[in-house]
Nucleic acid binder design. Structure first.
Length: 305
DNA sequence: GGCCAGGCTAGCA
DNA sequence: TGCTAGCATGGC
């Protein structure tokens, strides 16, 4: 067993994370609200292991207690902790964002209401890209179902001591080896199946080097990846946000974001993409985070919060 | 039952 | 460059 504690720059709201997961399900993890615990499988030292994350210290002194069932190598421990810091945006300082939002009449209520909400990022870029392609055009519940079926089809899994099975996201090699028909059988559309398998094969063949993207400016990543069939601007913007945690992306084609802007700004009708970009200009350099909070306003409305 | 979902491509003017 | 049909299915 290995234990460690991750200090998070305050504020961090575990409750807000749970609320968001209600409307944006992530079937790779299991939440136990009473014990403020979240369990998830991570690939450590090359094989899946269940990791327990406990959120302590409240919103203003947040820490994440990490516990594994087996004992990773030192390198495995280090990589695990880095991945968790990344996924939970532990090193992001929200203070300047809140100062800035506090000066905006429309955004101040969101900052107050959702204080401590952060991105829950994907563990790696391959997973972020595949999940985003799955999410194109379909509602969030269906996208989560499609992701779950993909995990069951070709993801490795591990059981915890309580008998719950956890899946790690398939490696690119596993998805590259699939046939379109296998995904069609899981109710993927023909195109979605092709896009995902083609992307995985491009990664395996090293026609796309995901690591290299980490150093590139947002617009360069967008220009490079939108050359791929099935990958439009929205998809890369989501990759930059939910895969890398980049702070200033505005997915203006996003239907949920546009609904949210209509709600938050009290507009008579849903803004189109152009109008969304115009409004989003004023959100620089925080467009990703403002988008997150605007999305969450929609989520809260759906939950009748 | 009809319309909408955290879009994208291909085809056409 | 700009516009649109078609894609597939689930949820409301």
């Amino acid at each position: 067993m290995f234990t460690s504690v991750i200090d998070v720059i305050p504020p961090y709201s575990f409750e807000r994370l749970l609320k968001r997961l209600e409307t944006h399900p992530d079937d790779q993890l299991r939440v136990e609200p009473v014990s403020r615990t979240l369990k998830r499988a991570f690939r450590i030292d090359g094989r899946p292991q269940v990791v327990t994350l406990r959120f302590v210290g409240g919103v203003e002194q947040p820490r994440i207690e990490v516990q594994t069932e087996a004992s990773p190598t030192p390198a495995g421990q280090s990589e695990l902790l880095n991945t968790i810091r990344h996924m939970f945006s532990a090193d992001v300082d929200l203070a300047p964002l809140y100062t800035w939002m506090g000066e905006d009449e429309k955004l101040r209520p969101l900052a107050d209401r959702f204080r401590g909400l952060r991105f829950l990022l994907d563990a790696d870029l391959f997973q972020a890209m595949v999940r985003t392609i799955i999410g194109q055009q379909v509602n969030l519940a269906f996208a989560a179902a499609l992701t779950r079926r993909l995990l069951h089809l070709c993801g490795e899994s591990v059981m915890d001591r309580d008998g719950h099975r956890y899946y790690v996201f398939p490696k690119a090699e596993a998805i590259a080896a699939l046939q379109v028909e296998q995904l069609r059988a899981l109710q993927y559309s023909q195109r979605k199946a092709e896009y995902i398998i083609d992307f995985a094969r491009a990664v395996v063949d090293e026609k796309i080097k995901l690591d290299r993207l980490q150093q590139m400016p947002d617009e360069d990543v967008i220009n490079e990846l939108t050359k791929l069939r099935g990958v439009g601007r929205w998809t890369v913007e989501c990759l930059l946000m939910f895969g890398m945690g980049r702070p200033d992306l505005l997915p203006a084609a996003d239907i949920g974001l546009r609904n949210g802007i209509q709600l938050v700004y009290g507009l008579p009708k849903r803004p189109d993409e152009q109008e969304t970009r115009r409004i989003g200009e004023s959100w620089r350099p925080w467009r990703s985070y403002v988008s997150l909070y605007v999305w969450e306003a929609v989520g809260a409305a759906k939950r009748k919060e």
